[in-house]
Amino acid sequence: MIHEAWFTFKGVDSREMGVIVTAMPETVRAERRIESITVAGRNGSLHTDEGVYESYDRTMECALIKRAKLDEVTAWLVGSGEMTFSTEPDKVYRVTIANKISIAQMMRVFQKFQVILDTQPFKYSVNAAGDALELTAPTTIRNSGTVYSEPLITVYGSGDITLTINGADFPLYGVEESITIDSEMMEVFKGNANQNGKYGGADFPRFEVGQNEISWTGNVSKIKIQPRWRWL
């Protein structure tokens, strides 16, 4: 039943806030960024595929049943954070809420109000901690998502190290104890210290859908990976 629908935002459950969902947002797939090019004298068009996806808006309809929580709810439903839905409890969306919400509507019990979700293109595993990997020897890992992932990789070791994923090399120079590669942010660091100068890769590591071979050379004791599996 619809009154049993719920969502979480920034770790807070809508049921705890006295908010019920009267209409869940539509489930859609993100649009791929493809540029269409028309060439004079040529039939049809050419397409440039950047291999990336656009964010998109979705609308959720809610109602407030605990007027005493009005101020808390309006302060909660704003800004950026992770959101899960009862319709997909195993997935996490990254959303931003910026639309105005009618306080007058919220003050009337069961009066509906809309929450517009500026949604990033991918959804992630709700069990990110459980998906974490620790490697002490070369191996093969499987990406069971529907799109390549941009992992967070921490290499523990020293000196010059080369990480190899699916035949592509990602060199690291002068490592001292550990170094972290964040493929999503395109940054290399140790703690709060920028280490981009110690990275020699032309691109950043990614795990393709399916099997991925991982190996390395150099003085490495272990590698910790947050794979960030994701789905469209």
Rank of each mutant, 00 (worst) to 15 (best):
I2G: 05
I2S: 06
H3M: 06
A5N: 14
A5G: 01
W6M: 07
V12T: 13
S14C: 12
M17A: 11
M17T: 08
G18K: 11
V19Q: 07
I20D: 00
V28A: 11
V28C: 04
A30S: 07
A30L: 01
A30Y: 00
E31I: 06
R33G: 01
I37E: 09
V39Y: 14
A40W: 11
N43W: 10
G44K: 11
S45A: 07
S45I: 07
H47C: 04
T48R: 14
T48Y: 10
G51D: 03
V52N: 04
E61T: 14
C62I: 08
A63K: 13
K69H: 09
L70S: 02
D71V: 13
T74A: 07
W76F: 09
W76Y: 14
W76L: 13
L77A: 09
V78L: 08
G79D: 08
G81Q: 12
T87L: 03
T87V: 03
T87E: 04
E88K: 11
E88L: 12
V92S: 02
Y93E: 00
V95P: 00
T96G: 01
I97L: 02
I103H: 14
A104H: 10
R108F: 05
V109L: 11
F110L: 07
K112D: 02
K112L: 03
F113Q: 14
F113S: 09
V115Y: 06
I116M: 15
L117H: 06
D118V: 10
Q120W: 00
K123T: 00
N127E: 07
A129F: 12
A129C: 02
T136F: 13
T140A: 08
N143Q: 11
G145E: 00
T146D: 02
S149K: 05
P151Q: 10
L152A: 02
G157T: 12
T162W: 03
L163P: 01
L163N: 10
I165S: 10
G167V: 13
A168F: 05
A168D: 12
D169Q: 14
D169E: 07
F170C: 14
Y173E: 05
Y173D: 13
V175E: 04
E176G: 08
E176H: 10
T180P: 06
I181Y: 13
D182C: 14
D182E: 06
S183N: 08
M185F: 15
M186D: 03
E187V: 14
V188C: 10
F189A: 12
F189M: 15
K190C: 03
K190Q: 07
A193S: 12
A193W: 07
N196P: 02
K198H: 06
G200L: 13
A202S: 09
D203G: 07
R206F: 05
F207V: 15
V209G: 08
V209P: 04
N212V: 09
N212Y: 11
E213V: 12
I214Q: 05
I214S: 05
W216F: 12
K222L: 13
K222Q: 15
I223K: 07
I223Y: 05
K224Y: 03
Q226H: 15
P227S: 13
R228L: 04
W231N: 02
L232V: 00
